[in-house]
Amino acid sequence: MTATSDVLDHLDTGLWTYREPLRFFGLEIGRVMVVVRLSSGGLLIYSPAELTADLRGALAELGDVRFVVPASKLHGHLYMEQYREAYPRAELLAAPGLDRRRTDLDFDGLLGGTPDPRWSADLDQTAFLGHRWLTEIEFYHRPSRTLILGDICYHVTGDAPLSTRAVARLAGMYGRLAVPPDLRRTIVNEDAARNSVRKILAWEFDRVLVGHGSVLESGGRAAVADAFDWLR
């Protein structure tokens, strides 16, 4: 049996990540799943990855999967049906719009800008608003002072393939936390987006986890403020 440490990266108390490959327009950008062990002992899975045998074994060593949540209707929902089958007692929550997109799934609730009382002791959350077609749910893990994001920021570093690094340099995104240019161009309500960023920056986080790219271990609040300086 594969050890948990060989499958999941343990970042802090009650916090792990799992990485899987993902190609986007020919570039390997990877995708990050986040695992949070709640005070209750159950697990919350953010942006679930393909549930391989090794991943399922690693999760079993950590606790019972209780909640499975996507970042948005576009990010982190592709394998939710696998978690429904593997963990029938787990609750699947839909990001705004996902319940209409994934009519094949029976969701147990909808995510919004207020944390569920069942995880509010460990996680705060808000919704990033103002985008043309995307509302993303962001989390703040209080015990580790970690911000958890989906697509609104990337962090492309030397760990990325050469071609991905080259494109990131051309886009002005390499080596720093950055908002993808396509997201910047499709903000339709700057006031709503600006207010969302203010809510995020009100949290006292240091580490930042993104859906695509490397972990930013420290200096996270300043990095997020800099990434959204064009908006603020």
Results as ranks from 00 to 15, higher is better:
residue 47 S to A: 13
residue 47 S to Y: 01
residue 48 P to F: 02
residue 50 E to W: 10
residue 50 E to L: 08
residue 56 R to P: 06
residue 57 G to S: 06
residue 57 G to K: 00
residue 58 A to Y: 05
residue 60 A to N: 01
residue 61 E to I: 03
residue 62 L to Y: 07
residue 62 L to T: 08
residue 63 G to E: 04
residue 64 D to G: 04
residue 66 R to G: 07
residue 67 F to N: 00
residue 69 V to D: 00
residue 69 V to N: 01
residue 70 P to Y: 03
residue 72 S to A: 05
residue 72 S to F: 00
residue 73 K to A: 13
residue 73 K to Q: 13
residue 74 L to T: 11
residue 74 L to A: 09
residue 77 H to Y: 14
residue 78 L to N: 15
residue 79 Y to L: 04
residue 79 Y to S: 05
residue 79 Y to A: 08
residue 81 E to L: 12
residue 83 Y to T: 03
residue 83 Y to A: 02
residue 84 R to F: 08
residue 86 A to N: 09
residue 87 Y to A: 02
residue 88 P to H: 07
residue 88 P to V: 05
residue 88 P to R: 07
residue 91 E to V: 13
residue 91 E to S: 15
residue 92 L to S: 06
residue 95 A to R: 03
residue 98 L to D: 06
residue 98 L to Y: 08
residue 99 D to N: 13
residue 99 D to H: 14
residue 101 R to W: 14
residue 101 R to F: 14
residue 101 R to P: 03
residue 103 T to P: 05
residue 103 T to Q: 15
residue 104 D to E: 14
residue 105 L to V: 15
residue 107 F to P: 02
residue 109 G to Q: 13
residue 109 G to M: 13
residue 111 L to K: 04
residue 111 L to E: 03
residue 112 G to W: 07
residue 112 G to N: 11
residue 112 G to K: 01
residue 112 G to F: 09
residue 113 G to F: 07
residue 113 G to V: 03
residue 115 P to G: 05
residue 116 D to I: 08
residue 117 P to R: 11
residue 118 R to T: 12
residue 118 R to S: 12
residue 119 W to D: 02
residue 120 S to D: 15
residue 124 D to Y: 04
residue 126 T to S: 10
residue 126 T to Y: 00
residue 127 A to P: 04
residue 127 A to Q: 09
residue 127 A to S: 15
residue 128 F to H: 07
residue 128 F to E: 07
residue 128 F to V: 15
residue 130 G to R: 04
residue 131 H to D: 08
residue 132 R to L: 14
residue 133 W to H: 13
residue 134 L to Y: 08
residue 135 T to Y: 03
residue 136 E to M: 02
